[in-house]
Design a protein around this nucleic acid. Structure first.
Lengths: 151, 151
DNA sequence: CTTGACATTGACATCCATGTCAAGGCTTAC
DNA sequence: GTAAGCCTTGACATGGATGTCAATGTCAAG
C-alpha cells in the first residue's frame, strides 16, 4: 500500500509517517516511480509507535519495541530492551508525580497565605509538607530566589 | 545598575532578562549610550519571575504577580489576578498528576504482562485501577490504537 | 591610542513531533 | 489532452525559554 493508505489505516498523517521513517523507526520499499510501498506488517509497527506515544513515551522509546516486532516476536515488549524502557518510564513517571505533588503543595500553601479565607478544602492534606522545602530548592536555573519563593 | 549587574545579582542570564523585557514583564530606562539601566525594584521583579518559573509556572503566568508588585503591593500575590493564577495552576497540576497516575498504572500493567516474574512490588497498589481506561482513551492524537494499547 | 570588558541588536539554534506550503512528478478517468 | 488526486522532496513554522554568535558601539585603564 502507498503512504496515503497507511495513513488512512493508522490515522497517522503522512507527515508523521515520513518523520518516523526519517528517525529510522519504519522503512518502506520504493516503487519505480519513487513512491513508498508498505505492507501489512507496517500497520502493526505504526500502531505500536502510536500506542507508545499515547502512553507518554518519546518516539525514541519506541525503537526497541519496533525492533522487537521486526525480529519476529509476537509483541513489541517481548524483548528485554523493551522491558528496560518500561522500567525507565515507570521511574520517570514516579519522579514526575513526586515533583508535581511537591509543587502542588507549595502553590496551595502560597494560595492559602495570599487568600486565607478562600483556600480549597483539599489543602488541609498539606499539613505534613515541609513548607520551606521548595523555597530552599530555589528556581530551576539555580537562581537564589527571594526568601519567599513565590513572592 | 546595568544589565550585567542585574544578571549577576539575580543569577539570570542577560539573554533571559532581555527576553523578559521583550515579553513586557520588566522594563528598563536607557542611558545616553543606549545601555539599559535598572534599579533595585527590578531585582525584586526578576526574583518573583524566577520563583514562579521554578515552581512550574509559565512566564506568562508571572504577569499578574509582576503587575501586582509594580502597583506597589507588598507581595506579588496580593492581588486577585494572582490568586486566579494560583487556582488555575493548582487545577492544572491536579490534572497532570491524575494523568500521570493513569499512565503509570498502564505502563506497570504492561510491564507485568511482558515480564510476569520481575514486576515491581509497587505495582500491587494498582489493583484498584481500571486497567482498560487508558487503552480505551486511545493515543494522544485521537488515533485508534491496537487493541492492546502498548502492543 | 590600544586593549579588554561590557553593552547593543539581530539572527539563528535547541528540543520534539507535527503542520503547512511550494514546486514538481505520476496515475487514472473523462 | 486535461483535470484531479496522490505522490515526492525540501523548507519553514509551531511552542516557550534560553543559548550562541556576529557585528558593532561604549567605556575605562594603561
Amino acid at each position: 500500500m502507498r503512504i496515503g493508505e497507511l495513513a488512512e489505516r493508522t490515522g497517522v498523517s503522512t507527515r508523521s509517517l515520513r518523520y518516523y521513517e526519517q528517525q529510522g523507526l519504519i522503512t518502506a520499499r520504493r516503487t519505480a516511480n519513487g513512491y513508498r510501498e508498505y505492507d501489512e506488517s507496517d500497520v502493526r509497527l505504526v500502531a505500536e509507535i502510536r500506542a507508545l506515544l499515547a502512553a507518554g513515551f518519546a518516539l525514541e522509546d519506541a525503537r526497541p519495541f519496533v525492533n522487537c516486532l521486526r525480529a519476529g516476536h509476537p509483541a513489541g515488549d517481548a524483548c528485554p530492551e523493551s522491558v528496560t524502557v518500561y522500567r525507565r518510564k515507570l521511574a520517570e513517571i514516579d519522579a514526575e508525580i513526586h515533583d508535581l505533588i511537591r509543587r502542588r503543595a507549595d502553590v496551595a500553601d502560597q494560595l492559602a497565605r495570599a487568600c486565607p479565607g478562600c483556600a480549597l478544602t483539599r489543602e488541609h492534606s498539606n499539613d505534613h509538607v515541609d513548607h520551606g522545602e521548595l523555597r530552599r530548592a530555589g528556581p530551576r536555573r539555580g537562581q537564589a530566589g527571594p526568601r519567599r519563593v513565590l513572592g
